[in-house]
Amino acid sequence: MASLQVEELSHSLLEISLQELVKEPIITIPQNFIRLDQEPPSSLPYGSPSPITTPTIDMSRLVSGEDDGHELEKLHSTCKEWGLFQLVNHGVSSSLLEKLKHELEEFYKLPLEEKMKYKIRAGEVEGYGNTAREAGKLDWADRFFMITNPIHRRKPHLLPELPSSLRNTLESYLLELQKLATKLLSLMAKALKIDVTEMIELFDDGMQSVRMTYYPPCPQPELVMGITPHSDATLLTILNQVNGVDALQIKKGGVWFPVSFLPDAFVVNVGDVLEIFSNGVYRSIEHRATANSEKERISVAFFINPKFEAEVGPSPSLINPKNPPLFKRFRMEQYVKDFFSRKLNGKTYLQHMSIENGEGNSA
């Protein structure tokens, strides 16, 4: 009977709050959250390997250029071979990161009725909640996703209506990450030997968004998925693991490996749009998040993309008779709409855009 009540409750909260669902201890995982279609975390190679050692990039060395370009070359090879790195000495103050942590923890302590002021509305993807993308299946997480740039695309009931302390801290944080993303993408253009102005024109005042995610503890983490495996439909994603609880996993050589974060480091990953723009030189990486049996996890992902009206495709600087385009050109706004209308499934959306596949949305 108890399990039936939990099942009914999970249906009633389908698009509301997992955090509310697990306030009372649950014994049976509701069917909506069971993901037997996914490789469980226990499917790692024999012997439970240590978290994979991902490359580390030092932002202070990149900017200073005092090492004869060694750090820039390391950035270039990392984006080609990994598509993901940990960024240290990034310049965002530890006091701001600590304040953001505090404000997010306070937000997720708010009563449900307060958080529901920001709920996802019918037919939209922005807001607070937990929505099913396929066959009624849900990730083990509550998310608050919103577009933050251009300013005129902000939903008036979301960021502007947040508690003032959280709103001000988030605005400061987003401003710092905008500056950081500009530096990183400009350096990547230099490493790719693309005119920096071409890169800047692509993303300057482009679409930026943020996803604040709360992962509650799960009594049977092997049955659920914190976030379904996917690659990001972005230029870059900057991930801040707010409260130090690891859950990110990346697929390397066909095997899932956990990533252990360095203190105060950001994890930066190449998105599908940057793989397309670099004509396949840089590679986006498939990743997922698992659940923890004992601890809650809070993360903030910042997504950087071109302008909605931009036409995106391989950089003309990289195309020549010996290096033909691998991907079709497309309008960014249509690309985003298509991404959110499809289920998350590894890198299949990027494959959909390849010329070799014979598909994709040409502009």
Results as ranks from 00 to 15, higher is better:
5 Q>F: 05
9 L>D: 04
11 H>S: 09
12 S>M: 08
16 I>T: 10
19 Q>H: 10
20 E>H: 13
22 V>N: 05
31 Q>N: 07
31 Q>M: 07
35 R>Q: 04
37 D>P: 01
40 P>H: 12
41 P>N: 08
41 P>E: 09
43 S>Q: 09
47 G>D: 00
49 P>H: 06
50 S>R: 14
71 E>M: 15
73 E>S: 11
75 L>M: 09
83 G>W: 00
93 S>I: 03
98 E>A: 15
100 L>E: 00
100 L>Q: 00
102 H>R: 15
106 E>R: 15
107 F>K: 04
113 E>H: 09
119 K>S: 15
119 K>V: 14
130 N>R: 05
130 N>G: 02
135 A>S: 07
135 A>N: 09
139 D>A: 08
139 D>C: 08
142 D>L: 02
153 R>T: 12
163 P>Q: 09
166 L>K: 00
168 N>R: 12
174 L>Y: 00
175 L>N: 10
178 Q>I: 10
181 A>P: 06
182 T>R: 13
190 K>G: 03
193 K>D: 14
199 M>E: 05
201 E>T: 07
203 F>G: 03
203 F>D: 04
204 D>H: 13
209 S>M: 13
212 M>C: 09
218 C>Y: 02
218 C>G: 01
221 P>T: 03
225 M>Q: 13
228 T>R: 13
233 A>R: 09
243 N>L: 15
247 A>H: 03
249 Q>N: 02
250 I>S: 02
270 V>P: 09
270 V>L: 10
272 D>P: 00
275 E>R: 07
279 N>L: 15
283 R>E: 14
287 H>L: 10
288 R>E: 03
294 E>A: 09
320 N>E: 15
324 P>N: 03
328 K>A: 08
329 R>M: 08
338 D>R: 08
344 L>F: 05
346 G>S: 07
348 T>S: 14
353 M>Y: 13
354 S>H: 04
355 I>E: 13
361 N>F: 12
361 N>M: 14
